[in-house]
Amino acid sequence: MWREIVFWLCAAGSVITGVAVFRVDSMARATFALLASFLFAAGTVLLVDLTYLGVLVILMMIMEMVIMVVFMLMYMMNPAGLMPMTMVHNQKGSLAIAIGTFAVLATGIYLIDWPTSSAPQPEDPTMALGEALMGPKMLMMIVLGLALFATIVATVVLATHRGRYDRYGDRLDRDRPDDPVRGGVGR
C-alpha cells in the first residue's frame, strides 16, 4: 500500500518539476527543477529494491546538475531569469512529439502482456538485473565502458587549449611550467 502511495508521489513530483523546468525563467531554477525531477525518478527505482541503482542515480544526478548549472549560466542568456524569457522553442512541434511519445508508451504499457513470476526475490536485485540485461556480454560491456572513458579523456586532451609545449617550451626543457596561475605541485 505505502509503496503505491510513494510511487504516485514520486511520479507526480517528477512530472510537476519536469514541467517547471520549462516554466521558470532562471537557468539556475531550471537546472535544479530538473534535478528534483531526476531525484523523484530515483525514488521509483528505490521502490523496486534496486538500492544501489537508485542511490547511484541520486549521487550522479546531483553531481551532474551542479556541474551543468555552471555551463548553463556560462552559455545561456539571462542566467538569473531577471528578464522575462521563455525556455520553449518550436512549441507546436515539440508538443506533438511529446504527446505522440506519451501515447505510444502508454498504449504499450496496457497492450503488452507483462510476465508475472512467483519466484522469490533475488538476494541482490541489482546483480540479478545486471545479469539479466547483459548476460554473457558483461565482460564486453565492461571493456566498452573503459573504452568510452578513454575516449572522453582523449577528446579533452586533443581539445585542450594549452598543451605541454605551451607549458614547458618547445624543447620541453622548462623546469616549471609557464601557467597563468601557479599550481600546487610546485614544479
Binding site: 535544479f32 534535478l35 542511490v55 547511484l56 541520486i58 549521487l59 546531483i62 553531481m63 546538475m65 551542479v66
Partner: peptide, 8 residues
C-alpha cells in the same frame, strides 16, 4: 550521495 548534496 548525501554528502554530495553539499555541492548543490
Amino acid at each position: 550521495a548525501m554528502e554530495i548534496v553539499a555541492w548543490a
